[in-house]
Design a binder for these strands. Structure first.
Length: 876
DNA sequence: TCAACAACTC
DNA sequence: GATTAGAGTTGTTGAA
């Protein structure tokens, strides 16, 4: 077998890892960000490079030979922060447990050790891969080492070839040291030649080649100033070059066998990961054992070959690649399929469409990643995808719902053994980002196949993991079936009334310009009212209004601050009005217009399944989950959203679903009783909190009790309650105390949730959805309190989300079974909206009520309220 | 390009 | 003694 070594610059990577995740601590307050980052890097390097040899080099304390020749070497560098110094022995322990050899030597830097080992390996025909964040190491490219420089913290690597160095610095690999010798390096305090920067250095070197040659022939330098500089600082340039040169003859014993990759000492590693609470790393240990290598030998199937295999094997994995011109136009580029180890690549849309019977055959199991995209594409072509069993996107979300993104390449990189070519690798990023259709098929194919194989590998790892975490039922029976429903909702869209939009737009334009001039008049000058910074200056400096809160960057001009100033100056109310109207115009008129499909006059919102940590959905482009309702004027926006001709909108929302879930989870007798007898829960709470009979409750008391009920669900404290009700903290405390006295099990439940969370590190919903809460044992009061509020709220919010997801599935199935034409067109957390042909209203009302109320059996009843109307305004 | 702020929802 | 309500998206400003 070919031999391959990975040599890691331990100091460089741990530094980067630490700064990328400096806040990571375990519950004893020991910082572990650097340890975590470096160790996960080691795991991924082993998985991705599959090296036969591996070692990590470290710097040692104390002066090196460079300091002895130049006492200011690295003189400007600050020492490692204390929090990082503490992590060094931990990292070394972990590396030892993983049986990974580390090297360090008094008097030499990690760089020199790396250079020495790399050179030795290259000379002995072993592929040498150097991993570091320090571009000085690029000089090693000159003798044939592969140098990979970390990007974005340490999450990505870039392999530098000679050409890359040339592009970045304008010099060849073997001139890197000359380049440093001339231009210097402020981070190492290498002086170079003062006045010579990177540009000049590369220009000089392209003519003269080396520093030595340059100095010898300095008289040939055309630019007079630079000639002088070179002459004057020749000695310093020579010294700088020496300092920048990695010493590749370090007297270490090079016994290759010591670097061989060995099986880790799993028990010891697990022990350490537990001790430092690096639980994510634990799974990597298992992954290493469980992952099956995927054969890279695979046949390329023809369309018919694939059809035969799909029919006989009854399962395949696939991905369709397409460009989105805008929200609705999808341009086919390529589709890839895998059955067993064989792969099929289609580039002709007609071939893909020929697979309609295969896609629609529910006996053939389909696996993929982010299958909502596949559903949408196939729906465009009247193909009704059936038989989906596994969606890696959804699996990744259930296993770690707090992730920022679920990019396939990242997920596979972290969990499985293959390398997936990322979008950025293929398409670039920023302004220069390409579309798939800009590339040739041959360029896309390796990318597409790497995605396909990544999904297959991911499935191998995730299926047992889902089982282990008790997610199988939630995954198979809720989240995966929901994918299709969300695609259907998105595909159907919500019709909008353009005339209504234009009408309100004209009104708003008038109102805004009128208020604008009033504000300028009252302020005595014109300024940008949208700028909190400029507004702050006007209000608190020019008009000398009393300043309320401050933000990090200046005066706060938030609504509640302004409200308190309303009586002091007429400009305040104008500004409040200005804000409400401009909000409506920019977000709900101008913003909405941008996402209306010109062809069908509908908005096709994207309902995202993997965004919210609690299990809720989120809605984007446009966000239909935050259409105004509270204020009468804003509520008019709901007139934009209308039923199809011959149909009406049916809007059904759960009444008090979160408080019912709370009653269920806490088993509080009084709460249960209240819902069993269908009492008004806010009135009941008011009577409890104010110690009066329900008939005596005033509307003010009821609305305060409503705030209390909400506050409890969110884990609000007395301060928050006093602020939101405008009462004293003392009174707020009394309310809260009275609340818990009336519903004693609620308090008990909250305490138990936190207790269990401290123990297990996560909280759960009724369908076993889990959310890890890391700060629950944090010694920092603020972080711990926030974690406790999250722990209290997540089971409630998350269980309510579970229930409405179940309801959506029931409704969807029931509509299909009864062959009704009514369609789900939106979900807003506790509300479902359907477009219902007029003749189906009665049937669908019945169906909807049953499906929603019976979605999940709580110990209290679920109650649904329904309304119909031509627009969302009337229906809700 | 990105963080901060503000405003809208359940 | 602190700090203070859970979950989201979008638009604007202004600094890098």
């Amino acid at each position: 077998m070919e031999q391959k070594i990975v040599i890691v610059d331990g100091n460089s990577l741990i530094n980067r890892a630490y700064f990328a995740m400096s806040e990571l601590k375990n519950s004893n307050g020991i910082y572990t960000g650097g340890v975590f980052g470096l160790t996960s890097m080691v795991f991924s390097l082993i998985e991705n490079f599959k090296p036969t040899h591996f070692c990590v080099a470290f710097d040692m304390k104390g002066p090196t030979f460079r300091h002895l020749s130049y006492d200011q070497y690295k003189g400007t560098r600050k020492g490692m922060p204390e929090e990082l110094v503490m992590q060094m022995p931990i990292v070394k322990d972990i590396l030892d447990a993983l049986n990974i050899s580390r090297v360090e030597l008094q008097g030499y830097e990690a760089d020199d050790l790396i250079g020495t080992i790399a050179k030795f390996c290259v000379e002995n025909d072993i592929e040498a891969n150097v991993i570091t964040g320090d571009k000085d190491a690029l000089q090693l490219v000159a003798f044939g080492a592969n140098v990979h420089i970390t990007k974005k913290g340490i999450t990505q690597l870039k392999l530098y070839k000679d050409a890359d160095i040339l592009e970045e610095w304008g010099v060849h690999a073997n001139q890197v040291i000359d380049f440093k010798g001339l231009s210097g390096d402020s981070s190492d305090n290498i002086p170079g030649i003062p006045g010579v920067g990177p540009k000049t250095a590369s220009k000089l070197l392209s003519t003269f080649g080396t520093v030595e040659n340059l100095i010898e022939r300095y008289e040939e330098i055309e630019n007079k100033r630079i000639r002088g500089l070179v002459e004057e600082h020749a000695a310093q340039a020579m010294m700088s070059k020496r300092l920048a040169t990695i010493f590749t003859e370090v007297p270490v014993e090079l016994e290759l066998d010591t670097f061989k990759v060995k099986e880790p000492n799993i028990e010891r590693a697990i022990q350490l990961f537990k001790k430092y609470e690096l639980t994510n790393l634990m799974s990597k240990l298992k992954v290493k054992v469980e992952t099956h290598a995927v054969a890279d030998q695979s046949a390329l199937l023809t369309l018919n070959g694939f059809i035969d295999l799909a029919l006989s094997e009854k399962a395949f994995t696939f991905k369709i690649f397409y460009d989105c011109e805008n929200v609705i136009d999808r341009n086919f580029v390529m589709a890839t399929f895998r059955v067993g180890k064989d792969v099929c690549v289609l580039t002709d849309l007609d071939d893909l469409l020929a697979l309609k019977p295969i896609f629609e055959n529910s006996a053939i199991m389909k696996n993929g990643f982010d299958l909502k995209r596949e559903y949408l594409f196939l729906m465009d072509h009247q193909i009704d995808l059936q038989g989906v069993r596994f969606d890696g996107f959804i699996a990744a979300y259930l296993l770690d719902p707090a992730r920022r993104s679920y990019d396939l390449a990242e997920i596979v990189f972290e969990n499985a053994s293959t390398k997936v070519i990322s979008d950025e690798d293929l398409l670039g990023k920023g302004a220069k980002k390409l579309r798939l259709s800009d590339l040739k098929v041959e360029q896309i194919q390796p990318y597409a196949i790497s995605h396909l194989n990544g999904i297959v590998n991911l499935k191998e790892v995730f299926v047992p993991k889902l089982e282990e975490m008790n997610f199988t039922d939630l995954f198979e029976n809720v989240e995966v079936p929901l994918v299709k429903i969300l695609a259907d909702i998105e595909h159907t869209g919500f019709r909008v009334d353009m005339d209504k939009i234009n009408e309100l737009d004209l009104q708003l334009i008038d109102k805004i310009s009128e208020i604008e001039s009033t504000v300028y008049h009252l302020a005595g000058e014109s300024f940008n009212i949208n700028s909190p910074k400029q507004l702050g200056v006007i209000l608190f400096e020019k008009l000398e209004l009393p300043m309320g809160k401050k933000t990090k960057t200046g005066y706060s001009t938030s609504h509640d601050v302004l409200e308190k100033l309303a009586n002091l100056h007429p400009i305040i109310n104008e500004i409040i009005e200005y804000r409400t109207y401009t909000k409506l115009k920019s977000t709900y008129i101008d913003g909405l217009r941008l996402v209306i499909d010109e062809r069908d006059h509908r908005v096709h919102t994207s309902l995202n399944q993997t965004i919210a940590v609690t299990g809720r959905l989120s809605s984007t482009e446009p966000n239909l989950q935050n259409i105004p309702i509270k204020l009468p004027y804003g509520r008019k926006i709901r007139r934009f959203f209308i039923a199809d001709d011959g149909s009406t909108l049916l809007d059904a929302d759960y009444s008090q679903i979160e408080l019912r879930v709370l009653a269920h989870l806490s088993e509080d007798p009084k709460l249960i009783e209240a819902f069993n007898t269908d009492m008004d829960i806010h009135t009941l709470t008011a009577s409890q909190v104010f110690h009066i009979s329900e008939s005596e409750v005033t509307s003010l008391q009821r609305s305060r009790a409503k705030e209390v009920n909400f506050g409890i669900v969110y884990g609000m404290g007395e301060f928050g309650l006093s602020e939101s009700l405008g009462i004293s903290r003392k009174d707020a405390k009394i309310y809260i105390d009275n609340y818990f006295a009336s519903y004693p099990r609620v308090k008990g439940f909250m305490d138990e949730v936190i207790e269990a969370c401290k123990e297990k590190g996560y909280v759960e919903t009724i369908l076993n959805r889990k959310r890890a809460i890391t700060d629950i044992n944090n010694s920092n009061f603020m972080l711990r309190s926030a974690a406790e509020r999250i722990a209290r709220n997540t089971p409630i919010q998350g269980s309510a989300a579970d229930i409405i997801k179940l309801a959506m599935i029931k409704v969807y199935e029931a509509l299909k079974k009864q062959k009704l034409k009514s369609k789900l067109i939106l979900q807003v957390h506790d509300e479902l909206i359907l477009n219902v042909p007029t003749d189906e209203i009665e049937a669908v009302e019945k169906l909807l009520k049953v499906c929603m109320e019976e979605a999940y059996k709580l110990i209290v009843p679920l109650k649904v309220e329904m309304n119909t109307g031509d627009s969302w305004y009337e229906a809700h």
